[in-house]
Design a protein around this nucleic acid. Structure first.
Length: 236
DNA sequence: GCCAACGTTGGC
DNA sequence: GCCAACGTTGGC
């Protein structure tokens, strides 16, 4: 498997301690949630209901997702002396066209990784590059398990504060499914997002724009299908 | 390369 | 527990 090119790190390499279950902040390890989307049942949380994020959906359960968007950098960039480049071509080059999605160091993204189920599909998004956008489709090949790179001192994503007994960071395996029929540029997606904000269209709340720096994000079925439908359209 | 957005850290 | 300083993400 891949032990080379890796996805992007994201996040603090130094986090000191896991805020475990303390506050209901959205990135709290176990309770992280997507503010824009829904809240969990009335268990923990509150403290301060507030915040206006009134959450949608009902009170009962946490919203679940079947589609995702995962960002990775297709162009070389050194992080602590290690190249973190991992574009879709790099995924295709792996045995079985499968790789582990290591290096995620953001609690909210980590929590989404843990929600993923085998067989679910995700868009492979190229970030921090000449042409940012969606380039292909991948699927979850293995559910979340501890990210080994957090224990490797040489790895750019090493985290001294984590332990094997209680790993802080997780990853999934993903497998290449296909390239999108055409590259779907960020700029084009953004045009739709903007238009949908007024028209109420499917991309009005897309996480790519509302949760800007999140490297692993969920899509609703409506969002996923709308984006897929763009494959058939003319480039914008 | 610049820099806005935003998550994390740590002083108080 | 607030919040300013700091560091990272990632488009442009």
């Amino acid at each position: 498997m891949p032990s080379r090119g890796k996805k992007r790190a994201r996040g603090p390499l130094k986090a000191t301690k896991e805020p475990d279950l303390k506050v209901a902040k959205s990135e709290t390890p176990e309770e992280g949630e997507v503010p824009a989307v829904v809240k969990k049942s009335g268990k923990i949380n509150p403290g301060k209901t507030s915040a206006g994020k009134a959450s949608a959906e009902q009170e009962g359960d946490k919203k679940t997702y079947a589609h995702w968007l995962m960002k990775s950098e297709p162009e070389s960039r050194l992080e602590k002396g290690v190249d973190v480049k991992f574009g879709i071509e790099d995924l295709k080059a792996q045995a079985n066209q499968t790789a582990c999605w290591d290096g995620v160091r953001n609690y909210q993204a980590r929590n989404f990784l843990r929600e993923m189920k085998v067989g679910q599909t995700a868009f492979f998004y190229h970030s921090n590059c000449k042409e940012p956008g969606i380039t292909g489709i991948i699927k979850v090949a293995k559910e979340a398990y501890p990210d080994h790179t957090q224990f490797e001192k040489k790895d750019p994503h090493y985290d001294a504060s984590s332990s094997k007994e209680n790993p802080k960071w997780w990853m999934v395996d993903v497998q290449f499914v296909r390239m999108t029929k055409r590259f779907l540029p960020l700029a084009e997606l953004k045009l739709h997002h903007q238009a949908h904000k007024t028209s109420g269209g499917p991309l009005k709340d897309m996480a790519l724009f509302t949760r800007q720096r999140l490297s692993v994000q969920p899509l609703t079925t409506e969002e996923f299908e709308f984006v897929l439908s763009l494959e058939e359209e003319k480039p914008h």
